[in-house]
Design a protein around this nucleic acid. Sequence first.
DNA 1: CTGAAAGCGCTTACAG
DNA 2: CTGAAAGCGCTTACAG
Lengths: 341, 341
Amino acid sequence: MGRVTSAEVARAAGVSQSAVSRVFTSGAPVSVKTAERVRKAAGRLGYRPNALARSLITGESRIIGLAMAELDNQFYPEILKLLSCGLQESGYHILVFMASGDDTETETVISELLDYQVDALIAASVALTTPLAERCRAQGIPVLLLNRHQGNSGPPSVASDNVGGARRMTEFLLRVGHERIAHISGWQGSSTGRERRQGFLQALAAAGRSAAACVDGMFDQEIVRRITRELFTAGDIRPDALFVGSDNMAFAAMDVLRFELGIRVPEEVSVTGFDDVPMAAWPAYSLTTMRQPLDKMIREAVRHITGCIGNPSTEPPQIRLKCDLCVRGSSRPLSRMEEKK
Amino acid sequence: MGRVTSAEVARAAGVSQSAVSRVFTSGAPVSVKTAERVRKAAGRLGYRPNALARSLITGESRIIGLAMAELDNQFYPEILKLLSCGLQESGYHILVFMASGDDTETETVISELLDYQVDALIAASVALTTPLAERCRAQGIPVLLLNRHQGNSGPPSVASDNVGGARRMTEFLLRVGHERIAHISGWQGSSTGRERRQGFLQALAAAGRSAAACVDGMFDQEIVRRITRELFTAGDIRPDALFVGSDNMAFAAMDVLRFELGIRVPEEVSVTGFDDVPMAAWPAYSLTTMRQPLDKMIREAVRHITGCIGNPSTEPPQIRLKCDLCVRGSSRPLSRMEEKK
DNA sequence: CTGAAAGCGCTTACAG
DNA sequence: CTGAAAGCGCTTACAG
């Protein structure tokens, strides 16, 4: 055992240690003959450059730190998968940290991530505290918020147009004839939660209507179940549509409606979500939802991150991408008459 | 910008660079007075030790490489979450790599992972090729297979007793009175796929029965949909029970049965899975399944990995954990009479 | 193209 | 307890 070093390879190949190093540094000057001898010796000894030592001297680790929320929501595995593939193509690797919700702990662990001299930090649906953002700035580490933002003066971010998406979803529900639309929102401490709620209220206001209900579901399925029960057993007039602030929460709401309360979807109530996670398309839910352009989000994220790593001058973007309405079976269909319009 | 170094802190605090280093090394001898002065200077300058430089000299990176299969199956996000938390507690971080199925690429990227001098490598549902395993051995990097194994002479592994679990599932289906049990297996190139199939066939053989069908579903929902259609529209006698080699595949099968073919579950056919991912408990599926003891698996994995990092003598385990049958609504209930037995 | 040398930021014997 | 020094494994000017 014991890792083989460039010095050992040099000895075996009868060249200097620098020569070995050059063979493994693309663009460095080496004669074909030297390269060949070194490669052969390296192959024989099983040598590979120590990435840590290299990072120490080049000043870039080619490691990206990724902090993300718990993976219950199918949206995050998707992000991780796409991000990992996208960054791998550019020769980066991902050091992950799963935020548990405990803010102090999150800060501690992200701090540890930074100790590894990550070339950049991506926070997916996790807030970056001010001290952390400050430290990144001081250390010259680019940060990017994904699927969240902290205002135009906050760190660069890639998210979708949640206000617009929620507004269009609400307009859709109005258009198919709903009269009493309720909203179970995402956590109001998050930009996505707030903005979708805001879009919902805007659309209703524009139509001169008011919400049948508007409650914070906290992105938590258990809370959503409770709220759904309350909303639909309260005695007074029931909502005829329920716009839920994320697909993951919408699934929980649908389950309660159909299997607990025996309320038919969409005959008695339309249910819609937001995100378009893969499961939304499964026939068991067939959920009408507002699709976040995940591919495009990741592409933008990768582009920005790789772009600004050597290049701190890159303009810090606040990217907002348009969402697409996916009409499926969980919402009342357009009437003939409406379709003609 | 520019990271602050221990030398700068030393200058600011009026001590030697070694003194600064000692303050940040637990167990190293420092006077309270020195420690205090150093901490103050470090705090003011925003100093934190460079983990890469430290790793270079201590020989341990406190990074664990994790290679895992694509995250479509809800089982993997769970693994990642639990593993990440478990290792974090011991001060480790996870460098992830998502295997795409392309073997050559997988090998390339895992190799890159190893370049970072990871303290150990965990492969979750990903095969470790022989050259890779060889390299780990040569470099003295402990490896662990999770939810897979490559035989008793292969690398250490933590998995569950898939043969026993599948056998018990099949016995359960026989006990509730099924006569024509079909199996859609997991990929036969994986130990989980093979062993569950084996358990299924063993149990049938022991009961003097034969399989209504036994087809490889490849862990792929699209393939499972196709197989399910064929199995249930073939004209001859339909299976009255379908044991699927993973929950994720079982969901696809149930969807086809209920929403495409209009076959009632469990009235006309029982459907059961394997794993017990969170979604299996959702009312939309209410899937009878064989629960893998995920918590225990992760605990064992963490214990083994952290145990053998400084300690190569630790016996390489081949751990097989017992599964638990979870009876839910997707399978025919026990008859009164049967219950009495 | 090539080698000797400096240095990345740290930890850790070694003297004192 | 403390500092000066060596060294982890590499890359990269610098001469030649």
